[in-house]
């Protein structure tokens, strides 16, 4: 079974892009399934199911979504193999811009939209900077020049990636994307594989349920904001 991780900021159009790509893959007779990861709620699983796509969802709830993702993805791959899928797609939102679900030797896609502002490519960490394929969406509503500038900015932070424009509404570009994901590496399981990038670490008192504000309640890995003059440049 082939496996692809798809990630991207919330509302970038991940689900629409995946649905359109699955349409193109199905036409070629491939059986594609999806594991959808979200935090509190998602209805996307019913959307996938209504198209006849085998789907499972995982809600991280009170846990860090990407830590939850990586603790469960191996089992999801096993599920995909039991379902006899040709291709499994995992969909997860990158919420803090420092997370990245991308795994070594597994095709990594990042979805990002033209409306998110041209500073955005710079602000997103390994999820974008380490992706193999960057899909840019919502190109139908911004000007040609802005599309070109946005793509150039993406290129700036990830020169190696294949950058594609896909329209989640009309499906333009989804066929082209499907030809790439269909070539993702074929795996038996994720055993022995590792993440491309470490995940943000924390382990402070707030991770353990602390709610009170104040220095005396803070234990563990805590970092302090720099409010001096020189901290102004420190985003």
């Amino acid at each position: 079974m082939r496996f692809v991780t798809v990630s991207g900021p919330p509302s970038a159009g991940k689900t629409a892009v995946i649905l359109r790509t699955i349409d193109a893959l199905s036409e070629r007779g491939l059986r594609v399934g999806v594991v959808k990861f979200d935090c509190l709620l998602t209805d996307d699983d019913t959307l996938y199911a209504s198209r006849g796509v085998p789907v499972r969802k995982g809600l991280s709830g009170a846990l860090c979504p990407d830590h939850y993702f990586i603790s469960n993805i191996e089992a999801c791959v096993d599920w995909g193999r039991q379902e006899q899928l040709d291709l499994l797609i995992s969909e997860s939102a990158g919420l803090c811009n420092r997370c990245s679900p991308h795994i070594k030797d597994i095709c990594a896609v990042c979805v990002i939209d033209n409306l998110s502002g041209i500073g955005t490519p710079k602000k997103i960490g390994p999820m974008l900077k380490g992706a193999d394929i960057v899909v840019i969406t919502k190109g139908d509503i911004v000007s040609q020049a802005e599309r070109e500038v946005f793509a150039a900015r993406v290129r700036q932070v990830n020169p190696k990636a294949v950058i594609m424009h896909v329209n989640g509404i009309t499906g333009q570009g989804a066929f082209e994307l499907s030809t790439l994901v269909a070539q993702a590496s074929d795996i038996a399981s994720l055993k022995g594989k590792s993440l491309r990038f470490s995940m943000p670490s924390a382990l402070c008192s707030y991770c353990l349920g602390e709610t009170r504000i104040g220095e005396e309640h803070q234990v563990g890995n805590v970092r302090k904001i720099d409010l001096n003059d020189k901290g102004r440049n420190n985003e």
């Binding site: 033209n114 409306l115 502002g117 041209i118 139908d140 509503i141 911004v142 000007s143 040609q144 802005e146």
Partner: peptide
């Protein structure tokens, strides 16, 4: 296209 706008 007609739908395109400037957003910056």
């Amino acid at each position: 296209s007609q739908n395109m706008n400037f957003v910056m």
